[in-house]
Design a protein around this nucleic acid. Structure first.
Lengths: 212, 212
DNA sequence: GTCTATAAAGGGATAGAC
DNA sequence: GTCTATCCCTTTATAGAC
């Protein structure tokens, strides 16, 4: 019955497993990998430790399952709709708002924290996270910029680099401060203002010649 | 004798304490806060655990002492020299190179990882890190941009925001990938190229009118 | 102050009953 | 599959000798 589904693909069949995954995700996000104990996870999930080990070979594999699951879910959430039907400025603003909302969300921040922290000890995890998250976003944005260049609505020599600059200007003013828990202090900015400024600077550099 | 020096200010007087701090820094950076044990730190420092507890009240205070020490050291390393005697383009490029070299260094990455990871459980640490590191750099850069605007060599309405955009474009294409340990894959870039591109995009947006 | 030795608690992982 | 109870090890932290 379960031969074709080695539990690594999509949805875990057992409701107990899902229960464990959700609780473990919360505990890992709250305590970090090193400090989170299997005991605490079992307690949070309302199951015994033996049940944990019946579904996952160990702490490391449980952790890997959670991170890859969260990455999958988040990258799905970033399927931008109809940016091709918008003006370049509006399209970039829409992409920027969606992206910024995602990366500043509490869950995304917690996942990012823990993946960054454990990347040296879980190298494959770092790769999987980057590939399913940032790399996918950058690739899609670069495609859009390349197409805009072909249409003449932008002039972008290196779409990949331009995409990275745009994303960087979106995240830069807010991401680190939010990661550090500094939202009010150090003059926190309105995300809408950050998006607008990023679009403005980007277009100053990459608009064809004179869009007026 | 030690009344005026509550050990929180500058240099630890005891050589043993310095020995402990260096070893603990390495262990924390290699293993993360949660997984690092006082036992391992004592072993790495070549002292007994009792000596650890003679100098530091506990794991958390030892950790805090290390992070604040590293922040102090790194922010001192960023005293940019004579940028006022350079052309704007060259000054920005010099700032960019220095900054990128620092934030991409192995030690800075390790510190950043652990501060980000533990910020929710050590809020004061996050504040101290940001204030002594990124905020100081941004403030100095914003000052420079504001002065350039006053001289007419740039046109920058919001120097703080422009500084954040510039720094973001420097870090964006490289920082996250390096944090995740992905240097070769996903098309790693030459830092020099990143600096050049960031300066170019920045000047496209903030050059006065026509510098030619 | 520094060590050896140990206390007291909590960690990951498992055996065996159901 | 799931639970209770437990093994065995490591953890943080301390007592007592020097």
């Amino acid at each position: 019955m379960t031969a074709s589904d080695p539990e690594a693909a999509a949805a875990p069949p057992s409701p107990k497993a899902e229960q464990v995954l959700q609780a473990a995700s919360r505990v890992f996000r709250e305590q970090g990998y090193g400090s989170a104990s299997m005991d605490a996870i079992a307690r949070a999930a309302g199951v015994s430790k033996a049940t944990l080990y019946a579904h996952f070979a160990g702490k490391d594999q449980l952790f890997a399952a959670i991170v890859s699951g969260e990455c999958r879910r988040h990258s799905q959430a970033l399927t931008a709709p109809d940016i091709d039907r918008l003006e370049v400025r509006q399209a970039l603003a829409a992409i920027g708002r969606n992206f910024l909302d995602l990366v500043l969300s509490a869950k995304a921040r917690a996942i990012y924290r823990i993946v960054i922290a454990e990347a040296p000890r879980f190298p494959e995890l770092g790769r999987a996270f980057y590939a399913s998250g940032p790399a996918a976003v950058l690739a899609r944005l670069a495609d859009y910029l390349g197409a805009a260049d072909a249409r003449g609505t932008l002039r972008v020599e290196d779409p990949k680099l331009a995409a990275e600059q745009f994303v960087a200007m979106l995240m830069g003013p807010l991401h680190m401060r939010h990661l550090l828990g500094l939202t009010a202090e150090f003059g926190d900015r309105d995300p809408a203002q950050v998006v607008e400024a990023a679009v403005a600077t980007f277009l100053s550099a990459y608009a064809p010649s004179d869009p007026a």
